[in-house]
């Protein structure tokens, strides 16, 4: 006999059910779980859904072996033009090849089509959303993430408001979408609900990544060479 138990233990107390009864029921379930060898416990190995970053040293350092899908990824480049966008391109190419849309929300500059094509992205799958304000941009990114209709969303936002970031994180979770958020390097000192936070610094022939935070993983420093 196979019994699948996922989140039964976390079920809310039923209305009208005294708390003590609920606790007894919890205990009974726990002992059932612990004493049965035929029960697979989902909490033991919470798998992270990921998408390979395309850089072996980075994939090795990230929990689940790639960019987490359905979670906010925060990128904090030291300055513009150090390969901060290039870092995401192999993953975006995978999505583009799978006919998924890649949405740039209020990028700071124009994404240059010849360069995108050289990275083997299909222009049919690159969507550029312009917005007048940071608020509009966050709203558009949130809607896109939540709808789950796009493969990836890249957002450039200055907002350091924890609630704004939480909304994005939640939307990414709901839509199970790859979500990159580009922020200024000073944001490093603020706490963030993002599942993954990376600080980017220029290196001689590539970029140096400092994993500031990785849910289910460890902090690390990774060097990525660009050919």
């Amino acid at each position: 006999m196979t019994v699948y138990l996922y989140s039964l233990l976390n079920l809310p107390t039923l209305p009208g059910m005294p708390h003590t009864h609920a606790a007894i029921a919890d205990e009974a379930l726990l002992s059932l779980l612990q004493n049965s060898t035929q029960v697979w416990r989902g909490t033991h190995c919470a798998r992270i859904k990921t998408c390979a970053s395309g850089y072996a040293p980075l994939d090795a350092a990230l929990p689940g072996g790639g960019w987490p899908v359905g979670a906010l990824i925060e990128l904090l480049p030291a300055c513009e033009g150090i390969g901060e966008l290039r870092l995401s391109l192999p993953a975006l190419k995978t999505l583009s090849d799978a006919n998924r849309q890649i949405v740039f929300v209020r990028p700071p500059h124009t994404p240059y089509p010849p360069a995108l094509l050289r990275a083997q992205l299909s222009l049919q799958h690159i969507v550029w959303i312009s917005a007048d304000s940071d608020e509009d941009a966050r709203w558009a990114a949130e809607q896109t993430l939540r709808a789950g209709a796009a493969g990836a969303v890249l957002l450039w936002s200055d907002s350091g408001d924890d609630r704004h970031l939480r909304r994005l994180q939640l939307a990414a979770e709901t839509g199970q979408t790859l979500a990159f958020l580009y922020r200024t390097p000073s944001a490093r000192r603020q706490p963030s609900p993002a599942a993954l936070r990376l600080r980017l610094r220029p290196a001689a022939d590539g970029v140096r990544l400092e994993i500031l935070k990785a849910r289910g993983g460890h902090t690390a420093v990774v060097q990525i060479p660009f050919s």
Partner: peptide, 9 residues
């Protein structure tokens, strides 16, 4: 086609 930057200004 030669290499091009990702942002055009």
């Amino acid at each position: 086609f030669p290499d091009r930057p990702l942002w055009i200004l």
